[in-house]
Design a protein around this nucleic acid. Structure first.
Lengths: 340, 340
DNA sequence: CTGAAAGCGCTTACAG
DNA sequence: CTGAAAGCGCTTACAG
């Protein structure tokens, strides 16, 4: 059974496609088409179970009603939750979401953006990996609507929505200091992205402001594509030796989850031997024993606002050209892993 | 700057669109188009940075190269990980993925399927909620390729790929019995889906086979849309009274994660006061203290095989009509939460 | 070896 | 109030 098309209805009713299209798009009144005809068309459409072909519609109107979402990994709960919020908000505006996991690889995200740009989406929400500046600039040039999330490039005047990473790391470190910890370590990843460097800066500044010397030996920078072994090494080093740390700040939940696994496998007590604070707040942190103090990001707000900004861009009125750059506050969730 | 179309290239080169299309689709040889012309076309396409419009191509060929993925919630790590595997495998076949979270609501999944069916996808991978039989039958009638994952409807002769839930629950329960636990509880959800009922049956059968009476008071069936309060009530009841349980099987990770949170907040020791085994294996179970014994599903295989089955269906040769129904084994990961 | 033409299923000026 | 026609950007028989 072939799907019914506009034409099928038109032929059956002996009217034009124009008429049918108009009526079905609710423009009957506007075009002063008689009540009687409208009803007839609508009834017939229902009878034949007419479903407009979105592809054809898209080709004609140049709109797909689809958003392209480029993130590091949809399997990472951080991005999964963000994806869900974006899906919800997009759906309110009649939009669908196509997702691509770039694994933080510039080359991969480049290809994904290029493919989706071939008429498949109306705009993008992107969490851009290191080295993808060029791709973002191309979107800018081509005037494709897009919003960056989670990170941005200071040198590109784009729309973005991020959190105040410096302040979040500063506050978290200060919290550990106030609890009485002195030898506070930081495990982070070797990434040139601003969000990562700002987290490290916030940590350093908090120590400096408290007149605690920043010991480079207590800053562990993991390889960009880090695995559990890398984290284990870092934690082992921090937990032993003369420079032994008494607390640690993990700068992502991926690092934090692996880090806690290592801490447990080494038989260390939290917070007794090592207090812990981590960026992000996955489910795991609530059921960890003790529960982990977390720097929660406002995913709901990041998701919904990024979609709203994108919608604004897609329906942009000429006048409003200045990029929307939003910096949100994180939510510090104090749990027992960081108590003294 | 407008995007370049096939026609632009044709006009610039003074040849027909046919020729350009043929060459760019690698059918130059096949149509014995001269080497020289081919090169010219390819060079010009590159020069103008030609990107074929996928929408137009899709309209003409009737193929979108997109898969519709309907799952409960992309924010749930179980589905996030599955989504990622599906994305990876689909990408190998030149396919993209559009996802929709149905929240286990039949009405929502129905609408999502209907929309995507309007020419937006070539096939579906669906984790169907209770009550969505009708929608699946409609796909069957319309001969839309689809594969069910995680659950299926016994009365519908569809393609599906699931795990052996009965056996998994049976083995897990037997494991607890062997460890010496006698008063084993089960916290599950009120769902008519086969996967859920089979988990409960497996639990009951293992008890029966070990001559342990199945105490209905130790089977807690949560409301379909369960929240933490529901889980807290269930755990509290199990942990107290004369019929006090000494071990518990959680039938989903969502329930399990909430359950562990409650167990900790009630100050119960695991496994001392209550041993724990749970379906699924989120990150949280590894960093929980003690780590949680889990029934891990082979997500990688479910993902890749579901895509492969779908690809087969989409390129189906007439001959092969029998539905592919796959049942995989789960992987029991013994950790200390279930030790005696 | 190459091109003119039809058509996928829509929408939208334009004309009456 | 309604319809004929063009066109979105492709692919693909068909013809020469």
């Amino acid at each position: 059974m072939k799907k019914t098309s506009l034409n099928d209805i038109a032929v059956e009713l002996g009217v034009s496609k124009t008429l049918v299209s108009l009526v079905l798009n609710g423009k009957g009144r506007e075009h002063r088409i008689s009540e009687k005809v409208c009803k007839k068309v609508i009834a017939k459409a229902k009878e034949l179970n007419y479903q407009p072909n979105q592809i054809a519609k898209g080709l004609r109107t140049g709109k797909t009603n689809t958003i392209g979402l480029i993130i590091a990994d949809i399997a990472n709960p951080f991005f999964g939750k963000l994806g869900r919020e974006i899906e919800n908000e997009a759906s309110k505006h009649g939009y669908r979401v196509m997702f691509c996991s770039s694994d933080e690889k510039a080359e991969k995200s480049k290809q994904q953006i290029e493919v989706l740009q071939q008429g498949l989406v109306d705009g993008f929400i992107i969490s851009p990996p290191t080295g993808s500046e060029e791709q973002i600039l191309k979107l800018e040039e081509a005037k494709i609507p897009y919003v960056l999330v989670d990170r941005f490039f200071p040198e590109i005047d784009s729309n973005y929505i991020v959190v105040d990473n410096f302040l979040a790391a500063y506050d978290a470190t200060q919290h550990l200091i106030k609890e009485g910890y002195k030898k506070i370590a930081c495990v982070t990843i070797n990434d040139k992205l601003v969000n990562m460097s700002q987290r490290l800066e916030g940590y350093k500044k908090a120590l400096a402001d408290a007149n605690i010397e920043v010991a480079e030996s207590r800053i562990k920078t993991l390889p960009f594509s880090h695995e559990k072994d890398d984290v284990l090494l870092a934690v082992t080093e921090l937990a032993g030796g003369a420079e032994k740390a008494d607390a640690v700040l993990f700068t992502t939940s991926k690092v934090g989850v692996m880090g806690l696994e290592c801490i447990h496998s080494l038989g260390l007590q939290v917070p007794g031997n090592l207090a812990v604070v981590s960026f992000d707040d996955p489910d795991a942190y609530r059921i960890s024993n003790p529960p982990v103090t977390a720097i929660a990001q406002p995913l709901k707000e990041i998701g919904s606002r990024s979609v709203k900004i994108l919608m604004d861009l897609m329906n942009k009125r000429k006048g409003k050209k200045n990029p929307q750059q939003v910096m949100l506050k994180t939510n510090f969730v104090e749990r027992s892993s960081s108590k003294k």
